[in-house]
């Protein structure tokens, strides 16, 4: 293959394939997403309400991040600052609870299902079934859980408890800040743990089983096998799971937005994503909405960068030597 006239004849002549293969992605992405992203950035420097066409510079950012001490209790800046930080706090709390349960559970299951020594009957069945919650639409999931945890005596839990005489008055699940949040954490974990487990499993199955056989012969115990052999090879996929769960969690929208009765979303479930959505679709506060989006992006990138520092790959040394 004729290549360009540079140092390593072999490498450069294949480089163009690299560009070719990645071209569709970048073309499509550039076309569909670049303008919207830039548009949002621009909007974040413009005003809200009747001032959506006016340039306000960094005011949206400054208000969101630092509030506005000058205007009294209900000044625009202060109110939005409070709403944004409240949203942020809730987002982190909901994400943390959901993430911990999910990762522990799915990692545990992935290991169990790939354990060559301690075999469990029916793993095929289990693997399939545990993914099923992810198949139901978020709106339906929210509707179902609202029925289960309703405040009134008609809710599933309440009616069961009252009919059996365990309690006299219905428990107001949805009115207690922490109960509501724990319920949402549980729902999110329940929805996604099968998904995460499958991802981890696919990573584990990519590992040559002869490695495990060798380890078993050498007398490696279960946990030792896991930490010294499985995890290092699984690390890239594990990191993928951590990063995507991080991103997904920071953008959590569906369930928090839908878990409510009545007209307004539940105040204990205000995430940053619901804040962004509300001010873009319901009210004409594009400036705040866009600025919040950009801030969310920045935070996500920072956290992502921290996680990705661990992303060394098993084959990296080999590649570098080739250079």
């Amino acid at each position: 293959m004729a290549g360009g006239g540079t140092k390593s004849h072999k490498l450069v002549s294949y480089a163009k394939y690299g560009y070719m293969f990645i071209l569709p992605f970048f073309l499509v992405y550039g076309f569909f997403m670049i303008w919207p992203f830039i548009n949002t950035v621009l909007l974040s420097f413009k005003g809200n309400g009747s001032k959506v066409n006016e340039w306000v510079g960094f005011q949206n950012y400054s208000w969101l991040l630092f509030g506005d001490k000058s205007g009294g209790r209900f000044a625009t800046g202060k109110v939005h600052h409070d709403a944004f930080f409240d949203g942020f706090g809730t987002t982190v709390i909901l994400w943390a609870g959901n993430f911990i349960i999910q990762i522990v559970l799915s990692l545990l299951l992935a290991v169990w299902f790939s354990d060559v020594r301690i075999k469990i009957k029916g793993t095929g069945f289990f693997k399939v079934v545990m993914y099923l919650p992810n198949i139901i639409m978020a709106a339906s999931v929210a509707a179902m859980f609202l029925m289960i945890f309703s405040n009134t005596k008609y809710g599933v839990i309440n009616s069961l408890a009252i009919n059996n005489g365990w309690i006299k008055d219905p428990i107001p699940f949805m009115s207690n800040k922490w109960m509501v949040r724990v319920i949402v954490m549980f729902i999110q974990a329940w929805l996604w743990f099968g998904n995460t487990m499958l991802l981890l499993l696919s990573g584990i199955f990519g590992i040559d089983p002869s490695i495990y056989e060798a380890a078993a012969i050498d007398g490696s115990s279960g946990s030792s096998t896991f930490f010294r052999i499985t995890m290092p090879i699984l690390k890239p996929i594990f990191l993928y799971v951590v990063v995507t769960s991080l991103i997904g969690g920071l953008q959590m929208f569906d369930i928090p937005y839908l878990m409510h009765t009545g007209n307004d979303p539940n105040d204990y479930l205000n995430t940053v994503a619901t804040y962004i959505y509300k001010h873009f679709h319901k009210f004409n506060n594009f400036g705040f909405s866009a600025a919040a989006s950009i801030l969310l992006f920045i935070v996500t990138v920072l956290l992502g960068m921290i996680v990705m520092r661990f992303n060394t790959d098993a084959t990296a040394p080999k590649k570098q030597r080739k250079k």
Binding site: G47, N48, G49, S50, K51, G72, R73, F74, A75, T76, V79, H80, D82, A83, K282, F283, N285, F288
Partner: peptide
């Protein structure tokens, strides 16, 4: 107060007195 903050949040054009 909560209702007022919600309204202030929704409509930056409105002045909401303390």
């Amino acid at each position: 107060a909560k209702a007022k903050s919600k309204i202030a949040e929704a409509y930056p054009d409105l002045k909401v007195k303390d």
